[in-house]
Amino acid sequence: MRHLIDISDLSVAEIDRLLDLGEDMLRRPEDYRRSQQGRILATLFFEPSTRTRLSFESAMLSMGGSVLGFPSPDSSSTAKGESLQDTIRTVSCYCDIIAMRHPKEGAPIAAAMKSEVPIINAGDGGHNHPTQTLTDLMTIRLEKGGFEGLTLGLCGDLKFGRTVHSLVTAMSRYPGVRFVLIAPPELRLPGYLTAFLREKGIPYEEVEHMEDVLPRLDILYMTRVQRERFFNEADYVRLKDTYVLTPDKLALAGEGLRVMHPLPRVNEISPKVDDDPRAVYFKQVRNGRYVRMALITRMLAENGGEEAGHEH
């Protein structure tokens, strides 16, 4: 059985087909309104993440399917000491597909080993979050018409931001892509990823100020600087306001720029930017619903077949 654990479980061609289906669903949602009637998605959130859970549930409900699950670990059986694998064995008897989020890295792999149904990783700690990456890819393709030759600016916490790591990995598979990494020295992209870019001959540059590079970017991907990533409050306070996008800075950018953010934001994008046509982070949320619809559809259709994800 195939699962989706990591974005690299999907080939470039598989991603293309998923995005095609997602875009069709976005244009003609009524055609899919009953397409998953009778199917059940379980959302197992061993770590609360209301946005991601709502996005999955909305996706399934938009296709006439049903959802069950628990929103937080205190209401789950693992809170009573049950193992993850036992929980998965039990829940996979009640549903056709599982979306799970877990604070521990690699948890979805352990789950997939015992599951009777396909598993979608909805985030495992700071490790992988492939449906966020699919959301990002769908947004980039819709806004820019494709991936080839784009210059992507990634701004903020590039060290701990897993959405950034997955996006770099995913985008590195398209020809002509270049990266501009905008971060303070403390929060730079990890060495293994820059080594990977050098190995693949993908151009990137590391800068500390977005003003210098904004005019050259096709995409500006903003991230939040999370308090829980810091051991010390002073470091957090010093860095959290360093990389804030304001209308003044945006004025430096070209008309073709698109500003993205995985949300929720704290203050790294001024709300005054929201109505600028180049701000697409709320469209990104909408796209997340449709690309999850496409993913659920594919994985249910191809359960055991030749497409979609991780083999175990």
Partner: peptide, 29 residues
């Protein structure tokens, strides 16, 4: 932060990632 620190019955599995540098990676994390 690895799931193997929490889930007691999991096998610890390491996969050879770079033979020249003798580097293994955890199958899970």
């Amino acid at each position: 932060r690895c799931i193997t620190t929490q889930e007691a019955n999991l096998d610890q599995v390491f996969v050879l990632a770079d033979p020249a540098r003798k580097i293994y990676r955890c199958l899970y994390c």
